[in-house]
């Protein structure tokens, strides 16, 4: 029996290291310890061994079984490792570039808009939106722009034929014409007509002017406007907002200044200058960044707010201009060409 066991173990020790795959291993395992396996057959012989020898033989068989099992375990571990190694393939060269293009990028105009909205969100402005196709009432009449004002001229504003029908842009009066909004102030009118004050909104969006396209002009561009209407809103509050915005955007040393100006929808009105030392490619002490003022009582009249009770301020600026100043871009057309070498610079 002992010889048989030794021979079996020797055979297993010789055979198992050569087993390469899991099916081969399973077959080999069955040959030794399966129901018809060689070791199983030897174990069955234990019954024929004289009674007094049985403990010793039993011990031998158990020892052999243990040894065989360790041969099997070793073989299985080796096969497992070989399988994992096969999944790996050759070592990578980590310095090779990824063939995937990317990462995707967010347009600089979007980034500037989002940054401004984030700054304004912090002081309680919510973002309002409105149609780009507008009517004369929302774009002009309600904003105290008389019907013969040059801004309303067909020379400066895009109009649609009288027959045009826009299903989801409401008219105030049936006879007014549709046009492409020249500023996002129309959103202010729609917001004020929707509900009572107080309101505090920022309206970014695309606007249109009938203008030659050149390095600083484009037929469509983007604006961002703020409107705050409440009791006792003052000029000082407006200045505080502008100071806050540009300090948040450009750092605590940034200064703004107001120069008196004229806009039909605000009184008093100001142009806003920004101290330019932070800005690339600007060789002036101050640079104009937008317009603002206290909402003209005529605008409140147009939307049915009592101008004796409510006061408010409005501020507006061009997003392209802001982006050009922030990034030092000197041609507005780059924004609409979408050259990836341009877009990738802003991430």
């Amino acid at each position: 029996m002992q010889d048989q066991l030794s021979a079996l173990l020797a055979k297993a020790a010789a055979e198992l290291p050569a087993v390469k795959t899991r099916p081969e291993f399973e077959a080999a395992k069955a040959r030794y310890v399966g129901p018809h396996g060689e070791l199983t057959a030897l174990m069955k012989q234990l019954g024929t061994v004289p009674k007094e020898q049985r403990p010793a033989v039993g011990r031998l068989i158990n020892e052999a079984k243990g040894t065989l099992q360790s041969h099997l375990d070793t073989a299985l571990a080796r096969i497992g490792e070989a399988e994992l190694a096969a999944q790996l393939g050759p070592a990578v060269d980590a310095t090779l570039p990824s063939p995937d293009s990317g990462p995707g990028t967010i347009h600089p105009l979007t980034q500037v808009r989002e940054e401004m909205c984030r700054i304004l969100r912090k002081v309680g402005f919510s973002i309002a939106d409105g149609p780009e196709v507008e009517t004369e009432f929302y774009c002009f009449d309600a904003l105290n722009t008389p019907s013969d004002h040059p801004a309303r001229d067909e020379k400066d504003t895009f109009y649609f034929p009288v027959s045009a029908r826009f299903g989801n842009v409401s008219k105030k009066v049936p006879e007014e014409r549709y046009l492409l909004r020249t500023h996002t102030s129309s959103v202010q009118i729609r917001t004020m007509l929707k509900g009572p004050p107080p309101i505090r909104i920022v309206s970014p969006g695309r606007v249109y002017r009938r203008d030659t396209t050149d390095a600083t002009h484009s037929a469509n561009f983007h604006q961002l406007e703020c409107l705050y209407v409440d009791r006792k809103v003052t000029v000082r509050d407006l200045k505080a907002l502008l100071d806050y915005i540009f300090v948040a955007l450009l750092g605590k040393d940034t200064k703004t200044r107001f120069r008196p100006h004229y806009f039909g929808y605000t009184e008093p009105s100001f142009e806003v200058d920004l101290s330019a030392k932070h800005l690339p490619k600007v060789r002036k002490e101050w640079i104009e960044i937008g317009g603002c003022g206290m909402v003209d009582p005529a605008v409140f009249d147009a939307v049915g707010y009592d101008s004796e009770v409510w006061s408010g301020y409005a501020f507006g600026m061009g997003l392209e201009r802001l982006a050009m100043l922030l990034y030092g871009i000197d041609d507005i057309r780059y924004f609409y060409q979408n050259d990836l070498r341009f877009l990738r610079q802003f991430g």
Binding site: G124, S126, I199, R200, D230, K239, F258, R259, P260
Partner: peptide, 23 residues
């Protein structure tokens, strides 16, 4: 002189308003 408007802190009493869903 509009360059003499004294500085101030932005007053922002809370308003219940949400961003337009389109945003």
């Amino acid at each position: 002189g509009s360059d003499r408007i004294p500085p101030a802190v932005v007053q922002s009493p809370g308003l219940e308003a949400d961003d337009d869903p389109i945003v």
